[in-house]
């Protein structure tokens, strides 16, 4: 087992984050514009004033049930933040605050992906840290247990 029981992926993220200015990133006027990656994935966007609910239906919070899923969920969340902030940065490449937040998510995504791959197998086919070619192994994302069995 990779983690002790009671593993807290958010605490883990906080500890591995090597950015000194985390407090600045998430506690200032600019930071009021965006939500966390967790809420971002749940609702489908990172920018608060861009969220447009439909008939007041609120999507469920996504909860992980196992350690493996907690790590995969963190990959989903950071990856989503990168996707959404990336579209914004395509049009606003000089927004240095958003770029810093983006860099922070990229760094966390890489770390989580690395840890997941080392323990559970490849997410990209360039992961080769194993004696055999694990890329082909089930489950694939469209299989029912495709690393997404936490909703």
């Amino acid at each position: 087992m990779l983690f002790d029981n009671g593993f807290d992926v958010d605490l883990y993220m906080k500890n591995i984050s090597n950015l000194k200015n985390n407090d600045y990133l998430y506690n200032n006027d600019n930071s009021n514009k965006i939500v966390s990656d967790k809420i971002g994935l749940q609702k489908g966007n990172m920018f608060k004033d861009e969220y447009l609910s439909y008939k007041g239906i609120s999507p469920d919070i996504i909860e992980a049930k196992t350690e493996k899923d907690a790590l995969m969920l963190k990959i989903y969340e950071t990856c989503f933040a990168i996707t959404d902030l990336g579209l914004y940065l395509d049009l606003h490449p000089n927004d240095s605050y958003m770029y810093e937040v983006y860099q922070n998510y990229v760094s966390n995504f890489e770390k989580c992906k690395d840890m997941f791959e080392k323990n559970y197998g490849p997410i990209n086919n360039t992961f080769v840290d194993s004696s055999n070619y694990e890329w082909i192994k089930n489950p694939w994302p469209w299989d029912k247990d495709g690393g997404t069995k936490y909703v």
Partner: peptide, 15 residues
């Protein structure tokens, strides 16, 4: 394009 072995949002339909 390079494939990433995950979805963008989880899908787990049981019925």
């Amino acid at each position: 394009f390079k494939y990433e072995k995950k979805l963008e949002y989880p899908v787990n339909i049981t019925k």
